[in-house]
Design a protein around this nucleic acid. Structure first.
Lengths: 215, 215
DNA sequence: ACTTGTCCTGTCATGCCGTCAGCTTACCGA
DNA sequence: TCGGTAAGCTGACGGCATGACAGGACAAGT
């Protein structure tokens, strides 16, 4: 069921093959960090991996296909972001702490994977369903948990009923993703990392609970 | 000062030349809407414009260069977004109205220019200063006005002093931009446009004033 | 008609794309 | 030890995009 790794022409990849494949993915990953997506060429990736373009095409249909593999891998890791929200309390001091840790964890994940996430974002915005699905997988892990938190607070009467839990959670997560993508931008702008995070946490807290946090 | 339109090799473009140039830009714009950025080729743009690749290179150094021109044009229009915030009152019912109109105007602008904004976003995220500058120009028009609004409220003691006005404004604007980029995504997700906007307005209001709006 | 400067394109060298046939290497059973 | 088989890799090739140039077409003024 797991599906063995296969080459484009249907052969099953053995040890050596998988190593080569992985090396190509690693090199591609590096290239994405150092040069514009538009300029990443198959031949450069192959050269960097010490192999030939033909070998690349044996494992991936094209650059986009290989990028999807990397993104899929990252999405698996990203599913763990649920931990940042699941089972957290949003009242009192622990609420503020939850917001802070969510911001911290999210920004960190984005910073670690910024190169590939840029491309995923672009693909999703362009309407490519495969990229869109991956983006959803990552964001959903957080959004769904947040949506539940809002609904719970609504059930207790602590949050207005006319708030759409899903829309609110989605907007907040989109905000976190956007700010994370342009972190460097903020610093050039004159906003320091140190003051950015508390403000994001404040917004998250306001959005979820509708109230100012008690720190 | 304005600088006449010039070809790559330094000649000044006359009437006919400018028309051709503009046609190339229009066709490029269209192509960006219909196909992935990575796949937009000079030859396709030229063909669509009923001319040859050589002509394209007479006016632009490459695809990226032409995209920058389009983006610059859009940025001029985007500067008008300031109107959505400047001189608005954030107290009482007019505060809620201000938030609603900001969201409406911003999302609309983004929807009208989504194809080119995708590319600008990517370029900026990749660290290209030219794209970054254009993005700033657009966002600044809103962010600066919002920052002023927050500072004003702080001076009146209506907002906590420990809020960084710039960070708050920047985060809110980043959120709007992100949600706008993935508007289609939200609908697939089960969130309707109709419930998305009020929630965004609510978040904006909460962020700026720290309080729930009076509708 | 002639001149001048703008505008467009045919052509060419270069380099990447994507595919194939065929060679080498590793594994395995007899 | 010795084939046999499948995995793994690459050289080479037609095709296409790139980017540069020089020369021809065109419009406008004299």
């Amino acid at each position: 069921m797991t599906g063995q790794v296969r080459t484009v022409d249907g052969r099953v990849a053995g040890r050596r093959g998988q190593a080569t494949r992985q090396k190509l993915l690693d090199c591609l990953s590096e290239m994405l960090s150092s040069s514009p997506y538009r300029d990443v060429k198959v031949i450069d990736v192959a050269r960097k991996a010490g192999t030939s373009p033909a070998t690349f095409y044996q494992y991936f249909p094209d650059v986009e296909g290989a990028v999807l593999e990397i993104a899929e891998e990252m999405a698996k890791e990203g599913a763990g972001l649920t931990e940042l929200v699941a089972g957290r309390s949003w009242v009192g001091k622990s609420g503020w702490q939850a917001a802070e840790e969510l911001v911290e964890g999210f920004l960190d994940f984005w910073r670690r994977n910024d190169a590939i996430l840029r491309v995923v974002d672009l693909g999703a915005a362009e309407g490519d369903k495969r990229f869109y699905k991956i983006r959803m997988k990552i964001l959903n892990s957080v959004t769904n948990s947040l949506t539940d938190s809002v609904k719970e607070l609504q059930a207790k009467g602590k949050v207005d009923k006319d708030v759409s839990a899903a829309a609110m959670a989605g907007s907040l997560v989109a905000m976190l993703a956007a700010v994370a993508s342009h972190q460097k931008g903020f610093t050039t702008w004159g906003v320091k990392q140190a003051e950015l995070k508390p403000n994001l946490a404040l917004l998250v807290h306001l959005g979820i609970t509708g109230k100012k946090p008690t720190k």
